[in-house]
């Protein structure tokens, strides 16, 4: 007799597909937030599976800070075509030009905070009532308490102390006009789960994740890519190193790691041996102990 049980990755996959189908059933204008990072790539791959043989019943939206790696942008445009999805780009530069936000100054200036305004404006303009994201609960401690279906008020704010209880697999997406939801289908996945899944599903990823030569500089122990958006301090020197990226965010806040991992298998071996979290190379989280919680309350994803 065979055993009727799924492996943990297939169970997670099934859970995520269930959540994506709930989104399509419960919302009128959902959108999938797409960053070009592995997590949102996995979510869009799961969406393709969940609705097959029909196309994905929602658009992809990228909040473009203007400080992205060019490799991520190229991949984004290619992948959207590959999965037959329509791509919407919301631009932080536009928000700056319109005077909606003011650019930070100084060496550590980042557009990370600014993208919240751009995102909320785009949600309002497009009348999206649900934004699907690739956040995982294992990433950061404020995220450990996030729901699959996370309610946002008419200002796009998250109220962590007044979240709706989420029981069994019943998701309550009811809301008033002007409010919206953030939905996180891969909440229960870990970094390792994502990589193993990328491997077994043969999902193509941006080249940034794999080892390459790059001109970099070291600031406060973080290896940054040399780029037009960051001014070097007088004492900082650039050098060529063999690196890769564990996450794909803005060039101004995403650090590289020294690595010769050229395949997904190599990366898995590296992740298994890693002694720091992937967000450990993200400067945006280090600003304060509650940095992520504060940004999330205001509407960050």
């Amino acid at each position: 007799m065979r055993a009727y049980n799924l492996t943990h990755l297939r169970e997670l996959e099934s859970e995520s597909m269930f959540v994506l189908r709930e989104v399509a059933a419960q919302f009128e204008r959902p959108v999938l937030l797409f960053s070009g990072g592995k997590d949102s790539i996995v979510v869009s791959h799961l969406a393709r599976k969940a609705f097959w043989p029909a196309p994905i019943p929602f658009k992809l939206m990228h909040v473009d800070t203007g400080h992205n790696f060019s490799e991520a942008i190229e991949y984004r445009d290619w992948w959207a075509k590959e999965i037959n999805a329509t791509l919407v780009v919301a631009s932080v530069q536009d928000s700056i030009d319109k005077g909606r936000v003011v650019e930070e100054k100084g060496y550590n200036a980042s557009r990370n905070v600014l993208q919240t305004t751009t995102l909320l404006d785009a949600i309002e303009e497009n009348k999206f009532d649900c934004a699907i994201g690739g956040a995982r609960r294992d990433e950061e401690k404020a995220r450990a308490k996030e729901r699959f279906f996370s309610h946002r008020d008419e200002f796009g704010q998250w109220d962590p102390k007044n979240q709706r209880p989420e029981l069994w697999n019943i998701f309550n997406g009811k809301k008033r006009v002007g409010e919206h939801f953030r939905v996180f289908p891969i909440s229960n996945w870990t970094e390792m789960d994502v990589w193993q899944y990328v491997l077994i599903e043969k999902i193509p990823l941006p080249s940034l994740y794999f080892t390459h030569k790059r001109n970099v500089f070291n600031r406060d122990g973080v290896i940054y890519s040399v780029c037009d958006f960051m001014k070097l301090k007088p004492e900082e020197k650039t050098e060529e190193m063999i690196v890769r990226f564990r996450t794909v965010g803005d060039m101004t806040c995403t650090g590289a790691v020294l690595s010769e991992a050229s395949t997904v298998e190599d990366i898995i071996a590296e992740v298994a041996a890693a002694r720091t979290t992937e967000r450990g190379s993200r400067q945006d989280d280090k600003r304060s102990e509650a940095a992520m919680e504060d940004r999330k309350k205001q509407g960050y994803f």
């Binding site: 609960r137 294992d138 401690k141 308490k145 102390k161 909440s187 229960n188 102990e289």
Partner: peptide, 20 residues
């Protein structure tokens, strides 16, 4: 996880943890 919890040393909400 949450700031209020750290300040008051209590757990307010369900938190999910992962290990393998």
């Amino acid at each position: 996880g949450l700031r209020a919890e750290r300040e008051q040393g209590i757990t307010i909400d369900v938190a999910y943890r992962y290990f393998a």
